[in-house]
């Protein structure tokens, strides 16, 4: 039974993730008054990339790409999608956060292994940015875990039956959403993959199959990040309700990113450690003194 559930989670990640990425491209095109690609464009892109004949850059590179994809797939199978929980009892916030680091490290290792200086710059920027958004995100998560005295995502979902955390702790939700934009690498925070500056950063040496696998990894990691936000802040519900909430969050993030320019890396860290971190501490303080709606 667990196998089917894991398969269901992964297939959801694949189909819904790629479809929503295609829809995001369409939305951005419409914001820019273009017609935009079809919604299934990203499926074509991934399969085309997998059909090409690429170059390897040594075994560290190969292993890094596989580790990135494998790590993210492993993370995704632990994330509950509404009432679809593949590993009941193991869907802990800390499990997800730690497993997620495996994928990120695999990507960093593989990309640095390609030997291209642009890739190293991109990875350095990605890790710096991670330092920026993780701190406010974890402070706001810690406030929630402290409030409910549990770190199981399923329990957190069920405990919001009366009112979502979005309304109970609006400041914390705002902080988490801003951090989510950074995790997704959406527009004001797409410094690590700045195509015009550092030739798409970590992906600079990725050809063909490696590119396809990294696109899948990107899709899955987007799915993990948004699912975590939806589960913790937007309450529980059935599988379909979950997907609906997921789509709404994704579209809001896309619309915000469609109209914004790019931060420089030091501006990213300064911003995260000033505004969202301050707000996160404020929220934690409110939770400590019991001001929760």
């Amino acid at each position: 039974m667990t196998i089917f559930k894991v398969a269901a989670v992964l297939l959801t990640g694949f189909f819904v993730g790629l479809t929503l990425e295609g829809i995001a491209r369409k939305i951005i095109a419409r914001v820019q008054r273009r017609y935009g690609p079809p919604w299934y464009q990203n499926f074509i892109d991934v399969f085309k990339a997998l059909s090409k004949h690429g170059f390897s850059h040594g075994w560290i590179f190969d292993f890094g790409v596989l580790m990135a994809l494998g790590g993210v797939i492993a993370t995704l199978s632990f994330v509950p999608l509404g009432n679809l929980v593949a590993f009941p009892g193991l869907d802990n916030v800390f499990v997800v956060l730690y497993l997620f680091a495996v994928g990120a490290l695999g990507m960093a290792m593989g990309m640095v292994g390609s030997g291209n200086p642009n890739a190293s710059i991109g990875v350095a920027r990605a890790l710096t940015q991670m330092l920026g958004y993780e701190v406010p995100y974890l402070v706001s998560l810690a406030a929630i875990i402290f409030y409910y005295k549990t770190s199981s995502i399923s329990n957190l979902m069920n405990l919001q039956a009366d009112s979502w955390n979005l309304f109970k702790m609006p400041i914390g939700a705002a902080v988490a959403f801003i951090s989510l934009m950074g995790m997704l690498g959406k527009k004001p925070f797409d410094t690590p993959i700045a195509p015009a500056e550092i030739a798409s950063g970590p992906m600079v040496e990725l050809s063909s199959k490696y590119m396809g696998l990294l696109m899948l990894m990107h899709t899955f990691s987007i799915f993990v990040e948004i699912s975590l936000f939806v589960d913790i802040f937007l309450g529980g519900g059935s599988y379909l309700v979950f997907l609906l909430k997921f789509t709404v969050v994704w579209i809001i993030a896309t619309l915000i990113s469609a109209v914004l320019p790019r931060f420089r890396i030091e501006q990213v860290v300064k911003f995260y450690w000033r505004v969202p971190l301050g707000l996160a501490f404020l929220q934690a303080f409110f939770v400590l003194i019991g001001w929760v709606f």
């Binding site: 090409k52 642009n118 050809s207």
Partner: peptide, 9 residues
């Protein structure tokens, strides 16, 4: 547009 030759067709 793609930024690097590795990704381009």
């Amino acid at each position: 547009p793609m930024a690097t030759p590795r990704q381009a067709d």
